[in-house]
Amino acid sequence: MHALLDALVIAILALNLYALGVSRIRAVINAVALQGVLLGGLLFLVHATLDVRGALLVIATLVIKGVVIPAFLVHAMREAEIQHEVTPFVSFMSSMLLGAVGTGLAVGFAHTLPLAEPHTNALLVPASFATVWTGFLLLITRKKAIMQVLGYLLLENGIFLFGLLLLEAMPFMVEIGVLLDLFTGVFVMGIIIHHISREFSSISTENLAELKE
């Protein structure tokens, strides 16, 4: 069981690096979707006893993170007629390198943290930090609005990973609320992206630079 859990976490880390290294937006959406499915699997594994609510939550996570949000983003991508991030602020190679360095640091950092007894060797904590870091990298270094939304999703996935340590703290209703917020958030961002592409005939956030001092 532990081995399977670790395998899933490592797959998530690999997807992080993959998302940093490709320019095709569709590929990044796929990576985030797969990560969502893996998170659902992790949630299933860490639930010691799976009751009705737990099962519902696993399904909701799989459907929202793995299917609904990615499908919506693919739709938004088609509407905006955009397929590639062409010139990010930091090149794909360098951002992948930064991601790898960040992951390494996260592992080292997690070892110095005062973790509770059952978690001292778990990969979840460093994976959480590494995924948050990846999300930030995408948010900061990419120009296309959809890529920034994907960065936000990775950031949320990282936080979700940390939440797996704290199942009792997050009751069913709150978890569902968080998922609902995430979905609504991406939905509203998608609408705004649609307006941006209509207004500027491009979804590069470089167009959004009129408001300044």
Binding site: L139, A145, Q148, Y152, G185, V188, M189, I192, H195, I196, E199, T205, N207, L208, A209, E210, L211
Partner: peptide
Amino acid sequence: LEATWKYLL
């Protein structure tokens, strides 16, 4: 539009 995007993100 720009303001809304920044606010949201």
